[in-house]
Amino acid sequence: MKIDEVPQDEGLYEGRKSVCYALGENDRYVLAPSTGWEPLNIANGMAWEVISKQVEQALRDVHARVKSPLAYHMALNQMDIKLMAQYVRLPIWRVRRHLRWEVFERLKPSLKGRYAAVLRMPVERISFVPEIQRDKGER
C-alpha cells in the first residue's frame, strides 16, 4: 500500500485517526494516518447490527414480561450469561434464573445492587427499560 492509497473513509474513529503502515518516499515504510476504511466499516457495522437486534429482541421480551429487565441491560452491554456471571461472581444458573421476570422482581435489593454496580448504573434504574421505539432509529 502506497501512502497516497491509504484509505480515508469516515467511520469508526469519530473523526479521530488511526495509523497504519504505508510506503512513502523511496518505497520506505512510514506511519500514515487514516480516518478509516470502508470494508472495515461494513464489517464493524454488521457486528453492531447483530448487537442491536439482540437488544431489540430483549426489549420486546421484557415488555412481554418473558424476561427481566436484566436481559435488556445485558444485551445493551454485550454480555452473555457466562460473562455476567463472572462479573457479579454468581453461578451461571443463578444469573439465568434472574433473567426470569418474576424472579428478578422479587430479588433482594443487595443483589440488584451488585448487578447495577457491574452495569455502572444507579440501582433504581435497573428495573426500568425504555419503551419500544416504533420507528427504527439508528443503532
Binding site: 472495515l40 464489517a43 464493524n44 457486528a47
Partner: peptide, 15 residues
C-alpha cells in the same frame, strides 16, 4: 466474513 475482516483490520493491525 465480517469477523475475518475485523480481525484483519480492526483493533490496530497496521493494515
Amino acid at each position: 466474513l465480517a469477523q475475518l475482516i475485523r480481525m484483519q483490520e480492526e483493533i490496530g493491525t497496521g493494515g
